[in-house]
Amino acid sequence: MSDLSRRKFLQTTSATALLFFTGLNKDGHAAPVKAYPSRKIGNIKNLKVNEPLTFNYPDESSPCVLVKVDNQAVGGVGTEKDVVAFSTLCTHMGCPLTYNKGRLVCKCHYSMFDVSRNGQTYQGLASQWVAQVVLRVDAATGNIYAEGVEGLIYGRIGNLKIS
C-alpha cells in the first residue's frame, strides 16, 4: 500500500481498533508470555450465532475474536462444535480483521478467511491462514478457555516471543 493509501486507510479505521495494532496495551507495554496461558474468554451459554466477542490472547497485543457459527467448524468446541476463536490480525500485512457472517474480512486488500474451515484464506492475498485459538469448554460451568494458538500470529517471530 502506498503511503497515501495507507493514510487514507488509517483515516477510516477507528482509533480503538488501532490500539491493538500499535503493539501497546493500555499501560503502554505488553507483558511477555512464556507458555500459552489458560484464559477464560467467555461462557458458552452467553454466545449467540454470529455475535462475536473480542479478547486478547496470548498477550495484550494480540487481538482475537470468539464466535459461534451456524455450522460445525474445524476445531470448534461446544456440543455443536460450532464455537471457534481466531487472531484478528490479518496474516497478509497485519490489518484488523472484521468478523462478518462466518468469515473474517480484511479491508486493506480484501483477504477473507473462513472461520468454519480452519481460518483458510478463501479469497485474497494472505498466503498464511489466520491463526486459530485452541479452546476448551468446562462442561460444568460452560466457561470457555483459550489455551493455545495454532499458526503464527502476524507480526511476530513466535506467538510467545513478544517483549
Binding site: F21, G94, S127, Y154, S163
Partner: peptide, 13 residues
Amino acid sequence: SKQAQLMSGFSYT
C-alpha cells in the same frame, strides 16, 4: 521483539 505495526512493509509468515 515487538508486535509489528500494520502495513510496515515487512512481512515474514
